[in-house]
Computed example of a mutant assay.
Amino acid sequence: MALSKGQKSYLVIEVWNWDNGYLANKMRIMTSSFQRPNPKAFKVEAKVSGHYVNSILACQEAKDKGFDEALVLDENGNVAESSGANVFFEKDGKLFTPAKGNILPGITRATVFQICEELGIPTEEKFFKPEEMQGADAGFFCGTAAEIVALDSLDNIAFTLDWESSLSSKVQQAYRHLVLEEDYSYLKTQPQYV
């Protein structure tokens, strides 16, 4: 054992049933006091097991305070992601998600962009504070474990649209169809806002 670079790499693949809280909808989330690791200290775009210590601390803090999950900020106070998933919020007919730099740009996140392009739902990557997300029309987490899970509120401020009438819900439905190799073109939206 050493702190130097290893000479060999090994691959292990494990499979098991997973029934976790992410599979439920309408999560109550809170802004965590824990920050996402600084990208100058870690390779934050890598899915590395050591990063999950930070995630566990943030998630446990949220659960200890009666929430379902944490929203983690970067070192500049911008929204980064949850303790284990990417985040989107919906406002005025458009989906917003944190820009790359302090996030793990996940495969499910990329799939959400693909779905939005196919359904005609505008998206934007940008840096934003949690206050901009609070009280938005809708929000969701997305990731391998989360798939796409609706958010109920952020810091006890509810999202304003009924989930079923949101564009975010259409993305969730399309994702479920996509993973089952089913057609979801019927969900294509007409522009709602000009």
Rank of each mutant, 00 (worst) to 15 (best):
L3G: 11
V12W: 14
I13N: 10
V15Y: 13
N20K: 04
G21Y: 11
G21L: 13
R28S: 15
M30Q: 13
F34M: 14
N38L: 02
N38R: 06
P39M: 06
K40A: 06
A41V: 08
F42Q: 08
A46I: 12
V48C: 12
H51L: 10
V53T: 15
F67V: 03
F67T: 00
F67W: 01
L73Y: 03
N76E: 10
N78K: 09
E81Y: 10
G84C: 02
F89V: 07
E90V: 03
K91Q: 12
D92S: 14
D92W: 11
T97P: 02
P98L: 10
A99W: 07
K100V: 09
N102P: 00
P105V: 08
I107E: 05
R109E: 02
V112K: 01
Q114P: 01
I115Q: 01
I121E: 01
P122C: 06
E124D: 03
K129E: 07
A136L: 01
C142Y: 00
A146V: 01
A150G: 06
L151P: 05
D152L: 09
D155I: 01
A158Y: 08
L161D: 10
D162G: 07
E164Q: 12
E164Y: 08
V171L: 04
Q172G: 10
V179E: 10
D183T: 07
S185Q: 14
P191R: 02
P191A: 06
P191C: 04
